[in-house]
Design a protein around this nucleic acid. Structure first.
Lengths: 361, 361
DNA sequence: TTGTACGCGTTATCAC
DNA sequence: GTGATAACGCGTACAA
């Protein structure tokens, strides 16, 4: 079935059918109806390849998740939620979603080339790209629009991205611990090759400095966004007797909690914990995690919308979007109410008491 | 850049370039080399739309996850792992992956039509489709190959699928509880509109019957594959004093554990638990979950491979593939060693002692 | 308002 | 071995 067949059945020419399908104004009401009827009858869909060939648009957006090494799909729910947001927005705009899951193998070159030069998508959303990934330099040569999730660590000014204010959010989190009397606050970082990891470290340092506290290198453990990193990091850090830990992510925080409890110490009494993300696990631990919530699903949705706006020429590059975060206070930090003088100079980051509609442990 | 341009640069005709790209035998060694050089220089990739238009193949497989209602992306890691497997296999075969995330909205009709009739993919992998989903009847009219993950509850004989032997696996799990002295074994099901949920229920009943135990309807709670269902289901079931629970999935089991511990009862002493899946959370609870492991990632990979084989005509429909499962014994069932006379008549399902390389709580 | 004719970039079928 | 050339199905000037 093609336009020609439909045209014949409806007693019109092929171009008229095309006009009907593309909502061209210059079609009389009853021709349109007649054609529509046939289209419905035949359950006809125009051939996307033929269409793409002439319009040079596929109405597909590509989503690249470059580093899959377990973390992405087993250790936490960050990427799944991102995908949910991306999928939802993509669908609303009537686009399709091409998913590229990466891995660091030898075939990377072929994979990268396929992603960047094959015109299977009209644009790309790229999540959590490390600045040293071979894909990075290729992005700059590309002809289609790109939106990165997380602030790129190079060429920031030229690249579209959507993220949160990691630095300030981390400052707020650590500031909260300080405000509640913690003095030896440790930090376990996520991947510092990604701005999410790096900026939270910076925010941590800022908070200490602003409070007149020393930044002790011994209290910083360079990890990854995994439970295992949190666990081992904490085991290591315990020798330096921290009274609180700011974890670069909730998954890390879960590992931290486990390590602390294994040593017979109490959370939050002996050591307070604050996580980051507010993903599922934050509510499933005992005590539940105090954490800096970021709108992960919304990040995905906004990224997709932005990309499509770029593709359709409704917006011009570069676009930089910051989404709001929120400190959610639960049991792990030892303050059952928000400290008062927090984040007064930034309207994007607010401290609120975290509700919990889920069953609690 | 197109074939014509490359041809000009290489001093040959367009057809020759096409032959080189498609590895046609009838090209002399040095013409091939000359053409290849130009292709490399220009970083040329043939236009997929033009190619698809004539070959009628996109080299893209579609992956449909029909019901997204949170569960898929926040409550457990089943679908992410499936996706990891699908992505890996797809990539190995040099295909791309088009992801369709569903939701039950009014726009479904449009969405379904787009999936089934637009030729953007050469075939479809469909995960966990409920038998009452509007997509189901449409599948049967389709012209491209389809592989379902999970046994379809209708037209099983006509549809390709890859799954596990849920019935026998559930029997083995429950049999294990029985062998260790449990007599009042409850069951919280997953979605029984999916074979994964339904067949495990059947296996549960079979095991009881074979052991001469009564099947008490009061001990069966019809739930979903979520932690919340497990939690509420268990709260409800406690009035009937079960001494063990077979949970339809690990996520359910986590909710069960939480509910039991909240009531001051001990696992496994007062109530034993066996889960299903062996996803991440199974090792993160205290006690860790005894569970029936299924190879989720492999399910995805095998489904993708099967679909591509079908597309390329290497295999004929229908194909039914069963993957092996394995009982992993940890702390929650109260048996620190496998019971002896289990699963003796089925080589696909083995009982082994579960190792744990992860830090334990 | 509708129809005609051309071009999009490939592959495939012929000749040579 | 290689080069013309006819599809593939659609959008879109341009003509009517």
């Amino acid at each position: 079935m093609n336009l020609e067949d439909i045209a014949k059945k409806a007693g019109v020419s092929r171009s008229t059918v095309s006009r009907v399908i593309n909502n061209d104004r210059y079609v009389s009401a009853d021709t349109r109806e007649r054609v529509m009827r046939v289209i419905e009858e035949e359950n006809f869909q125009p051939n996307p390849a033929a269409r793409a060939l002439v319009t040079r648009r596929t109405e597909i957006i590509g989503v690249v998740i470059p580093n899959t090494e377990n973390i992405f799909f087993t250790d936490n729910s960050y990427f799944p939620m991102l995908l949910a947001g991306l999928g939802e927005a993509t669908r609303q705009r009537d686009y399709a979603l091409l998913l590229w899951l990466g891995e660091l193998t030898n075939k990377d070159e072929h994979w990268i080339r396929k992603i960047t030069t094959s015109r299977q998508a009209d644009g790309l959303v790229i999540a959590s790209l490390t600045h040293d990934h071979p894909l990075f330099p290729r992005l700059l040569e590309m002809h289609m629009p790109i939106v990165m999730i997380d602030r790129p660590l190079q060429h920031e000014e030229r690249i579209n991205y959507v993220t949160i204010d990691n630095i300030h959010s981390a400052e707020t989190a650590v500031g909260h611990l300080i405000a509640h009397g913690r003095r030896r606050i440790a930090h376990i970082t996520g991947h510092v090759e990604i701005s999410d990891g790096r900026d939270r470290l910076i925010g941590y340092q800022n908070a200490l400095t602003k409070a007149g506290l020393p930044v002790d290198p011994n209290l910083i453990y360079y990890g990854k966004f995994t439970r295992t990193a949190g666990y081992h990091g904490m085991k290591y850090l315990l020798q330096y007797k921290p009274d609180a830990v700011f974890a670069g992510g909730d998954t890390i925080a879960i590992g931290v909690l486990q390590a602390i409890q294994e040593e017979g110490l109490r959370v939050p009494d002996d050591i307070g914990i604050i996580g980051f993300d507010d993903i599922d696990v934050a509510r499933q631990s005992n005590p539940q995690l105090t954490t800096m919530r970021q709108p992960v699903q919304q990040k995905g949705a906004v990224a997709a919308q932005l990309l499509i706006d770029l593709i359709e020429g409704k917006l011009q590059s570069p676009q930089h979007i910051l989404l709001p975060t929120e400190l959610v206070i639960r049991g792990s930090c030892g303050a059952d109410h928000p400290a008062l003088p927090l984040s007064s100079n930034n309207h994007r980051t607010q401290a609120t008491k975290g509700g919990d509609v889920q069953p609690s442990q």
